[in-house]
Design a protein around this nucleic acid. Structure first.
Lengths: 245, 245
DNA sequence: AAATAATGTGTCTTTAGTACATATTTATTA
DNA sequence: TAATAAATATGTACTAAAGACACATTATTT
């Protein structure tokens, strides 16, 4: 925005306030969890006639008195009771006809939550988890939004220590590998995976063993506190350039 | 957005249309060019009193009848006469108080243009190029928007063949390297740079030589047609996962 | 006690990244 | 026109990361 936004000038006469402000903005949340060894996403049954039977993402209009980035936190809190979740803005979708109820531009976020760590009140809201790989069609343009967020998650998951938001505090390397396989949709070599994770230096060895597994238990690890913040290992300007020199 | 957007239901009574639609959406363009061996950005002098003397990005409100992604093309066309430019959406900024004239959420795009290839009508619009490295302060939150777009450009420039949008059709490897140095803000080793670029396979050897240089002329290259589309070399799902296995 | 099933680990090969030096070509200058 | 200056063009050795691949160990189960 610049001087073109002459809301206080003569232009306001010929371009009506209503005309320009007749666009709503919403947020849509692609809420991922890891359940039954699958990457799943939280959906709600659309109650619009046009989309009978179709599911849609959780979203809501942005309120005039809240920051854009606060809106998805509110949506998650309201609809699932969850707080303190990992959220990342991905893309804003704004085709004229993307929404049946009017002109609505939506900013998509993805969220990573640990299903075991949160008490969800899902059923009374008609909220359900759906394996990402089974989802074919969603209401509105939500399938494209889902695909975009999944792609972003896949791009980021090896670079930043974010996948751990989908796991409980303590986990084994097998669980971690299975999670990565679920996210990326491929099988991984155990030795190379462990080598790569070790190289990242993200993990703390807890000197504890798995319990309740019907086989030899593995060691338990947790994410080092230094890496619990969002994107702490983001490559710096210099090291990014360093790949060239 | 989902069933919460009950624009046709009872909710519309208690939540007024105006309340929710009282947010405007704009686009802001970070228009990069390469000039005088520097990465530069197109700015306009802000005419708002609050920002007297400060420059701002080019932007405008999104019109009710245009796609969000079309708006930055229109802005560029209107303000600079340029068409057919490289544009990429980066992030949407929506703090409550980010704009002095009201609640305006803005989606930021960056654009890469070849200054030699476009006739710009800049001066009569008070548009001017500014070296990115010299910019300290901009109106609104535009410095943050600029920094975000620059960071994104730096992340993408080695991965995708996009930097060529800043160069004329034909260029020498020296020019290309100087451009990369300007974008990344570091010096690069000539031999390693050429090796890396050669590995990408982006370039076509034109069997032509530079002219009008006061030294030994270098060979001229151009971007292979196959790579002229946006992000053609984007790594696939499989190869992204392949870094793990 | 034996069998099962998963854990835990190391090496070799290939590829990419990085540091580094010399010969060649053209324009300029003397 | 010969010498000089300045930039082009190119290759090798070293290091780091990626990728393919196999066997011994440990806890559970039978």
């Amino acid at each position: 925005m610049d001087k073109n936004l002459k809301l206080k000038t003569a232009e306001i006469e010929k371009i009506s306030h209503l005309e320009y402000f007749n666009i709503a903005i919403s947020v849509d949340c692609v809420i991922f969890c890891y359940k039954d060894k699958e990457l799943q996403v939280l959906l709600i049954k659309s109650d619009l006639e046009e989309f009978s039977g179709l599911y849609s993402l959780l979203g809501d209009l942005v309120r005039p008195d809240e920051d854009l980035d606060s809106a998805p936190y509110r949506v998650l809190k309201q609809r699932t009771g969850m707080d303190d979740v990992y959220l990342e803005q991905v893309h804003t979708f704004g085709s004229i006809d993307r929404h049946v109820s009017g002109r609505v531009i939506t900013t998509a976020y993805y969220s990573l939550i640990d299903i075991k760590h949160h008490k969800l009140n899902l059923d009374q809201n008609e909220l359900h988890w759906h394996p990402v790989k089974d989802i074919r069609k969603l209401a509105f343009d939500h399938k494209i939004i889902l695909d975009t967020c999944l792609q972003r998650l896949r791009e980021q998951v090896m670079e930043f220590p974010i996948a751990f938001n989908l796991l409980p505090e303590k986990f084994s390397l097998r669980e971690l590998q299975e999670l990565y396989e679920a996210i990326l949709g491929v099988e991984l070599d155990r030795r190379n995976f462990r080598k790569k994770i070790a190289l990242k230096g993200w993990l703390e060895d807890l000197d504890e063993m798995e319990a309740d597994v019907p086989h030899r238990p593995g060691k338990l690890y947790s994410l080092k506190p230094a890496h619990r913040k969002k994107k702490v290992s983001k490559r710096s300007k210099l090291s990014a350039a360093g790949t060239l020199s």
